[in-house]
Write a protein that binds this DNA or RNA. Structure first.
Length: 109
DNA sequence: AATATGACTGTCT
DNA sequence: AAGACAGCCATAT
């Protein structure tokens, strides 16, 4: 299991998140960590910072449902376009939109 | 090898 | 509600 694999697992989880749904760094870390062992929210964040441009990164939010970092304006547009439950507080409605990522199970037949 | 850093999270003030 | 503090884990210097 290489760090490259970890990246693939994380990106896969993000891609599995359906439209109008979001997940959190911690949830991804938990799902990926199940098959990878170790890992943590920070590692997920690191992966996103480097490879996030290749996936719908706006479907990955903080534990409180607020958008990741900059581009928060862009993220808001994406949520609006996808119909993601938006809260007037300026964050995603976690109770409705939260998606629990499924562990890719190492994807090794 | 030790220290610093980061797209994190939970708890306390 | 917003900021401070402390855990956590992999990389970079």
């Amino acid at each position: 299991m290489d760090s490259e694999d970890y990246v693939e697992l994380v990106l896969t989880c993000v891609e599995r998140v359906p439209p109008a749904r979001v997940t959190t760094y911690g949830a991804i870390a938990e799902a990926v960590g199940e098959v990878y062992g170790g890992g943590g929210p920070r590692q997920v964040g690191r992966v996103m910072s480097q490879h996030g441009g290749a996936v719908p990164w706006w479907r990955v939010v903080h534990a409180d449902g607020s958008p990741p970092t900059c581009h928060d304006g862009t993220a808001r547009q994406a949520y609006l376009a996808e119909g993601t439950p938006w809260r007037p507080s300026g964050r995603v409605d976690m109770d409705t939109a939260f998606w629990r990522p499924a562990p890719p199970a190492t994807m090794a037949p």
